[in-house]
């Protein structure tokens, strides 16, 4: 491998490090945010902090798309032209800008249509990647190695889990907004806990999938 190729592989590895490693802080902080023993102001602040730390895994997930395809191309496992790779990098940069704008923009009304767009984009990406993976399993196009196609399928799974988190967290957000506006009640806390628990299961799903993808990437089995 040329040194610049090693740089891409290394970047891919660092993204894995910050995805899985960053999530520890998010996961643990969320328990304090969900705890009714703390006052609402504290929980609101903890919620903001959790959201900030969460930008590490969110950023890495987006950048996995261009780096992942680039690593596959470096190893000669892709049959598509390098123009596509440039397109993946541009796409990654634009999507990343959107993800960060959604985090930094405070005006909820202004954000709402773009958050919806982001969610739809995730659906499209997931289905596209599943399609590419299946096509590659059957016809070795555009990915020539099954283990790489499997990694893409697993990555599609992580996007699916991310969608799962967003759907599972909807009652949470509603309950938390009510708690902030009108105070804590046992019903609101119960809704919040149930929703948070459901979202956590999706998070654990991401961890398992991301670790599995890393393992397959390290192993590189031929099958």
């Amino acid at each position: 491998m040329e040194f610049w190729q090693s740089l891409i592989v290394w970047l891919h590895l660092l993204l894995f490090v910050y995805w899985l490693g960053g999530d520890i802080g998010v996961f643990y902080t969320s328990f304090f945010r969900n705890n009714p023993k703390y006052d609402v102001e504290t929980r609101t602040l903890l919620s903001r902090i959790t959201g900030d730390i969460d930008m590490a895994p969110r950023t890495t997930m987006v950048l996995m798309v261009p780096t992942g395809f680039s690593v596959a191309a470096i190893h000669g496992y892709l049959t598509i032209s390098s123009t596509w790779l440039i397109a993946f990098w541009i796409f990654g940069a634009v999507w990343l800008a959107l993800v960060w704008w959604l985090h930094l923009e405070k005006d909820a009304a202004k954000k709402a249509p773009w958050a919806k767009f982001d969610l739809r984009l995730r659906w499209v990406l997931m289905l596209t990647f599943v399609g590419i993976a299946i096509s590659s399993f059957i016809s070795n196009q555009p990915i020539t190695q099954n283990f790489v196609a499997l990694k893409l399928l697993i990555f599609a799974g992580t996007i699916g889990c991310g969608i799962g988190i967003r759907v599972a967290a909807r009652p949470y957000i509603a309950a938390f907004t009510e708690i902030k506006a009108e105070g804590s009640t046992p019903e609101r806390e119960a809704t919040l806990q149930a929703s948070a628990k459901a979202a956590r299961n999706w998070v654990k799903g991401i961890w398992v999938l991301v670790a599995l993808a890393a393992f397959i990437g390290t192993w590189q089995p031929g099958f």
């Binding site: 490693g21 802080g25 902090i49 730390i53």
Partner: peptide, 24 residues
């Protein structure tokens, strides 16, 4: 291969976890 994986996962819980410590 397994040890390489362990080596990388250790980096995850070292460098990756550290970002939360630093931010907090």
């Amino acid at each position: 291969t397994l040890w390489i994986m362990v080596h990388v996962v250790l980096l995850v819980y070292w460098l990756g976890a550290d970002i939360s410590v630093f931010y907090s």
